[in-house]
Write a protein that binds this DNA or RNA. Sequence first.
DNA 1: CGCGTAATTGAAAAGTATCAACACTGGTGG
DNA 2: CCACCAGTGTTGATACTTTTCAATTACGCG
Lengths: 192, 192
Amino acid sequence: MIRKNIDLLNFISNLKEEEHLYFIEENCTSKTIIAQQDTRTKWVYIIKQGIAKCSLNDDNGNEFIQEFFSEGMKFGELEVFNNKAIYCAMIAITNVVYYKISHENFTALLNSNKTFNTIVLKSLVTKLSEKGPRFAFQQNRTIKDNIFKLFQEFPTVLNIIPKQDIANYLGITLRSLNRSLNDLQIVKPETE
Amino acid sequence: MIRKNIDLLNFISNLKEEEHLYFIEENCTSKTIIAQQDTRTKWVYIIKQGIAKCSLNDDNGNEFIQEFFSEGMKFGELEVFNNKAIYCAMIAITNVVYYKISHENFTALLNSNKTFNTIVLKSLVTKLSEKGPRFAFQQNRTIKDNIFKLFQEFPTVLNIIPKQDIANYLGITLRSLNRSLNDLQIVKPETE
DNA sequence: CGCGTAATTGAAAAGTATCAACACTGGTGG
DNA sequence: CCACCAGTGTTGATACTTTTCAATTACGCG
């Protein structure tokens, strides 16, 4: 649910000065729209710290959250290859520190640096191989099954992510989420 | 819904003799299981002709169809990178002609041949960028909306793919599919 | 304290699945 | 040539799940 890619962060911090300059560090506060859906951008983004949601909004005002991104997750790289407008939005949930790298430098690094090429390939593969099972499970099980599984994997999610976002991630209404949490007797863990 | 990747087929047929031998041609009849879920394989498969379903089955007997694959779609490449058992099955719907290439040769080609590297990257990107919107739409709309959209994009689907498979692709029951088809007055086109 | 955002809850309406019976089709063997 | 069978498709009635709507409460922050 909350994805990370430490390899990529390590790779960046170990880059020699010259190539490290490709990556520009910025930060933003909670709720900032880091990248806007349906616009064109020249940047690929990589989360350094914090949590953001990668979400897809349709005309009816429905928000579908694909994943929550944390350390090392990159975003906007698909647009380097297919040269289209970005097809989903990236919105900060907590305060976020991130890198951005231009399409040109991204492509250059991809062609010149075999390690980077492999890391990018693997990250695409990982994203792909996680999406399938997630949607399969989500479609074929009841809401309760899905919530139960989610809270097993991630017991503290209520302390980190707003309920509406959790509901949008699961593709259900807030009402249904609340009912199921009651039935399953799941409560927000105390933070001490 | 039925994916193709002509670039990859062209690439293969233009390969020089030596590298073309990497790709072994085979064929099978309808309903053959080309690749079995949760097993390990040393092959990457590429459809040359026909249609197969890429599906994910769970313990409860539910089948979730990720996509229907046609000319040029490759399958099993994720396992080259993450070295796990294949996580979904590939089952022929029509008679199918396909290539297979070993993991070793796939990797070799990926490293030695820049065109191939790009084609593989792009195919991953395409798969990724199609999955998100599909599930977003599927989750946030009614069954009828989904069916209407599907039959707009693909009016002849009833002539090609069994109804149960269409239902599994949409994540609904056959009963619901039939009811909605009635309501929408969608009928199987005559084949002449 | 007051405001806006987030969370909670009940009742009614809408959407979907489940179950079971039946129809159609093409192929096979007597 | 007909009877049978398996696979595929069709349909109605009912039960269940989930959403919608609306009213209310809790919380954090200036």
